[in-house]
Design a protein around this nucleic acid. Structure first.
Lengths: 152, 152
DNA sequence: TATTGTTATACTCTATAACTATA
DNA sequence: TATAGTTATAGAGTATAACAATA
């Protein structure tokens, strides 16, 4: 028998105790729900929140190096190699020579820009869906509060 | 050379474009920062947010089955086996016979209850640290807004 | 027939450390 | 000496599918 995996943030009859009082758990809960909708939205497409972010960062910071991208995403440099390898194979990102011959300048290809435009559209729709219970003011407020959780 | 991995939610001089407008990315950002502080807080202890949650759920829902726990945590049943195996080895959780001989009743041991009390204390301090920039009203508001992101 | 716990397996993500070529 | 990208490797987390025992 198959078991469909699904995160239900609050299950009837289950006592969550302290978890209900922790800001951290509230964020985690939301994140799991959001991730699930993202995955369902992008079903079939080989894209994850992580990979989507890296495309956006490369698009808006053309010529960025892999090490810098790793820093922005908060992962090890070796992880970026795999990500860029994947996008390069698909023809979405190219590694261009930079002034420093140790490093590359990452750039979106034309195909990459076209694909990202489609991804952005889908992600925006996903984002509106998951935040549909909030009005514009609440969304802004939520983002502002979340920003305060990130050390400056 | 070692490269210390660290997530910086916003890096000077980097253009984030649409990521700055997505509720989903705001949540993800916060989650990464929070996780980092959690890991630093619990350094040395063999505990993760996931494992901490399962201890809390077992404590407050004594006799819960593994399948039910999997459902609460939104992971596969096989994942729960590994988690409970680990806690059983440490003597924090025990599998007791239940009415249905196919399933176990999960219970915290005395040692488990003592250990969880310590974990709770540490997690609460961690949670207050990561949300130190918010006053009580803001925390409540944030949790309320986040709750609206989780499908009912 | 269906469900519970379990196992085997595979896949993804990730960090670490060592390597190379450049600086 | 230090840095950028790369590789090899290992560990964690996870899902899937099949199995035995039980319902």
């Amino acid at each position: 028998m198959t078991q469909r995996i699904h995160f239900n943030a609050r299950i009837e009859g289950v006592e969550y105790d302290v978890l209900d009082e922790l800001v951290g758990y509230a964020v985690r809960r939301a994140q799991l729900s959001i991730y699930e909708d993202f995955a369902a939205t992008m079903d079939g497409e080989e894209i994850t929140p992580q990979r989507f972010s890296s495309l956006v960062i490369v698009e808006n910071n053309p010529g960025i190096s892999q090490t810098r991208l790793a820093e922005v995403m908060g992962i090890a440099r070796s992880g970026v190699v795999a990500i860029i390898d994947g996008f390069e194979e698909k023809g979405l990102i190219e590694r261009q020579a930079s002034g420093d011959r140790r490093s590359y300048s990452l750039l979106l290809t034309k195909a990459g820009a076209r694909q990202l435009k489609r991804y952005k559209q889908a992600v925006k729709e996903h984002d509106e869906r998951i935040s549909a219970a909030l009005n514009q003011a609440e969304k802004k407020q939520l983002c502002a509060l979340l920003r305060k959780l990130c050390p400056p």
